[in-house]
Amino acid sequence: MPDAPDRPVLLAVDGNSLLHRSYHAFLGSGTRTAAGAATWAIRGFFSQLGLLVDRVAADGLVVGFDDAGNNRRKVTHPEYKATRGEKDPDLVAQLRLAVRVLRDAGAHVVVPEGLEADDVVAAAARDAAAAGWDTVIATSDRDAFALVDGTTRLLRLISGGVDASPVLTRDRMRLLTGVWPEQYRELAALRGDTSDNLAGVRGIGPKTGARLLSELGTVRAALADPERTRVLLGARVAEVFTSAESQEVFARNVELMTPEPVTTGLDLAAGPGRLPLDEHAVRAALERVELGAVCRPAVRALCGLGFAPPPVPSFASAPAPRRPVVVAAAAPARETEWTLF
């Protein structure tokens, strides 16, 4: 995406994704309140959120969460995510707590009825573009690859935390997947998604799917050109690909992977979603869950506070001579561009 220093940036966070990763990454800390409530995932969440705001120089923030009590996709397709086990009670409790703490802090949080965080970040990117903003989506979910465009980048959360996570643009997406972002949903639908319990089209893996879409553009175009499809896939795979059963699987996957419309409630001109947040509100929200002391960097980032210079010592008399201190060489400046892998 070309540099646009005059365009503000909205950070759209998949709250479930970030909190799940924080739950496992900070599990060893075992942080709890004095009353015994688990808070290590909240601690990790705010730590990573502060790093995200800093990394993308965010001017706005929206955090989306799944509706834990209802899921329209599961109602219409019971097999969707059916293989996922029950969440640990401490994780469930911290997912609920995260929403409350963020709202108490003044952050704009959206929990859409019957829908998921994926739907929120997609809608937020749409609303931001309409308001003349750019968007950086932060998530570990590959479905968000399809949302990358001229005004939307994707910070793919991976092991190693925010600093190790790549920022994907349209060109980088092509390098990573072999297709353009606008083709990615069809690639994912052909490949399937084991994490969501969605089988793909038999015989079509990521490489074969990418080759088909790269050459012919869309699945519809491939079906309209059976001879070219047979050349690309081979006669046996082409026969499976064009079957009614395979196309039914493909259509189901596309339906489930397509974001549903969400009203985000963002008002980037004057209200909900703008940064910085009120310092008093953020500190008070974190203090209520006894995390004020360990989340100071997050408070600084979310509230737009600068680093306070260290106090200058004063002496009643001249200080005693000190041994010379060997100063280590300064660390190299951080790169302004991030690698893909």
Score class of each variant (00 low, 15 high):
43 R>N: 05
81 K>D: 05
173 M>F: 10
190 L>I: 01
144 A>K: 07
299 V>R: 07
202 R>F: 06
248 E>P: 04
197 N>H: 06
187 L>Y: 00
166 P>K: 00
207 K>Y: 09
64 G>W: 01
338 W>P: 12
175 L>K: 15
159 S>D: 11
150 G>S: 14
17 S>D: 12
108 H>M: 11
18 L>Y: 13
20 H>W: 10
17 S>G: 15
185 R>V: 12
89 P>R: 01
42 I>D: 10
337 E>T: 15
159 S>M: 09
184 Y>K: 03
195 S>A: 09
118 D>Y: 07
314 S>L: 11
80 Y>R: 05
158 I>F: 03
69 G>V: 10
39 T>K: 01
309 P>L: 06
165 S>N: 06
70 N>G: 07
194 T>H: 09
194 T>A: 12
74 K>I: 07
265 G>T: 09
200 G>N: 05
293 A>F: 11
10 L>P: 15
183 Q>H: 11
27 L>V: 08
169 T>R: 06
139 T>H: 01
105 A>E: 04
178 G>D: 06
340 L>V: 14
312 V>S: 09
318 A>Y: 11
222 A>Q: 08
21 R>W: 07
60 G>P: 08
82 A>V: 04
275 L>M: 04
96 R>F: 09
189 A>I: 03
245 E>L: 09
50 G>H: 02
234 G>I: 08
134 D>S: 14
24 H>M: 14
74 K>A: 10
128 A>N: 07
311 P>M: 03
130 A>Y: 07
203 G>M: 00
156 R>V: 13
298 A>Q: 08
257 M>E: 01
193 D>F: 02
276 P>C: 02
38 A>R: 00
309 P>M: 04
129 A>Q: 10
199 A>H: 08
200 G>C: 04
216 L>G: 07
225 D>A: 14
227 E>T: 15
89 P>L: 03
264 T>N: 04
258 T>K: 02
238 A>S: 01
50 G>R: 05
157 L>M: 12
163 D>S: 13
296 R>L: 14
190 L>Y: 04
171 D>H: 13
61 L>N: 09
148 V>G: 00
50 G>P: 05
310 P>C: 04
275 L>V: 11
182 E>D: 15
169 T>F: 05
212 L>S: 05
36 G>M: 02
65 F>H: 03
57 A>K: 14
86 E>G: 11
325 V>I: 12
84 R>V: 12
209 G>R: 02
298 A>S: 13
175 L>V: 14
182 E>V: 11
321 P>H: 09
143 D>G: 00
338 W>N: 13
238 A>Q: 03
189 A>E: 07
8 P>Y: 02
317 S>T: 15
63 V>Y: 09
21 R>N: 11
136 V>W: 03
340 L>P: 14
250 F>D: 00
257 M>K: 01
268 L>K: 11
116 E>C: 06
190 L>V: 01
116 E>T: 07
68 A>N: 12
74 K>D: 03
153 R>C: 10
199 A>Y: 02
283 R>K: 13
30 G>P: 02
228 R>Y: 06
169 T>H: 10
